[in-house]
């Protein structure tokens, strides 16, 4: 006869799940109370919102020519930032991959640095770089480069950890150096992954760089800030539409390219 093991008391009454639900609920209510979230304020502000929205329904089309250059600058910032960040990410990703670097000290140090970089929010980086290199696209490029570096290095070392180890063995057996093993057996296997991550990060960076301008880091975001500051919501509308078009176009192109890379 098959004897089914007896459930313990905690298992039988789902004590764990109940306790966790209670804890989450308590935290939610407590944080609402402490931060003073007021749903009412949102409703009273709604009229204001409708008014701005109404003004935005009448876009100032004559403003379009002024947005072309900042939009191009936004894309350029995203492209350069992504390129610089992702190229620097390659050696770090290789050194962080468990199947390539067996030395836990080196790997641990590299991963620690990568984790540290990823914890920095891009808006904070932008604020810092605007202070360091001044207002303008340079600050945006640096921000995006560091953001791309953190993101791609993580995605990339995880891709490296899934490769077929066979070619590595073959190259090692042929008397290759470590660098040659990486170059000939590892990178060809993850080349497509790399391009795909590059495009994905570029997509994210185009979106991010529209906002970075708000902090003075160049691109279309500067116009957003200016028009809002001048209460020219008809111009804001143009900026929003322009951003929308650029993001959609870049996303679509990048998605199609990435599908072909599969």
């Amino acid at each position: 006869m098959n004897t089914i093991p007896k459930k313990s008391f905690a298992q039988k009454w789902h004590i764990k799940a109940l306790v966790w639900t209670a804890i989450v609920l308590a935290l939610f209510i407590a944080s609402c109370a402490m931060t003073g979230v007021d749903v009412g304020a949102f409703l009273t502000g709604f009229n204001q919102f409708m008014q701005i929205f109404y003004e935005m329904l009448k876009p100032d089309w004559s403003y379009v020519p002024f947005t072309i250059k900042p939009i191009i600058q936004t894309i350029q910032m995203a492209l350069i930032g992504t390129l610089v960040g992702s190229i620097i990410a390659v050696p770090f990703a290789v050194l962080a991959a468990r199947n390539i670097v067996t030395n836990t000290v080196i790997r641990g140090t590299i991963r620690f640095i990568l984790n540290l970089v990823r914890t920095l929010p891009d808006l904070m980086l932008a604020a810092v770089f605007v202070a360091v290199v001044g207002i303008g696209p340079m600050a945006g490029v640096l921000t995006l480069a560091i953001f791309s570096f953190g993101m791609i290095s993580k995605l990339f070392y995880e891709a490296i950890e899934t490769i077929d180890m066979g070619p590595i063995e073959a190259l090692t057996a042929a008397g290759a150096t470590k660098t040659q093993v990486v170059w000939f057996a590892v990178l060809p296997q993850v080349y497509n992954h790399f391009l795909s991550y590059f495009l994905y990060t570029f997509e994210i960076n185009v979106r991010a760089s529209t906002i970075l301008g708000y902090l003075g880091a160049g691109g279309i975001g500067e116009l957003l800030q200016r028009s809002l500051g001048q209460f020219r919501y008809d111009r804001t509308a143009i900026v929003v539409i322009g951003t929308f078009i650029v993001v959609v176009v870049v996303d679509t192109l990048s998605n199609q390219l990435r599908e072909r890379l599969q």
């Binding site: 066979g166 070619p167 063995e169 073959a170 000939f184 060809p188 080349y191 497509n192």
Partner: peptide, 10 residues
């Protein structure tokens, strides 16, 4: 090797 161990994408 048993699994040839070529770099398949090259």
């Amino acid at each position: 090797f048993q699994n040839f161990n070529l770099v398949k994408r090259s």
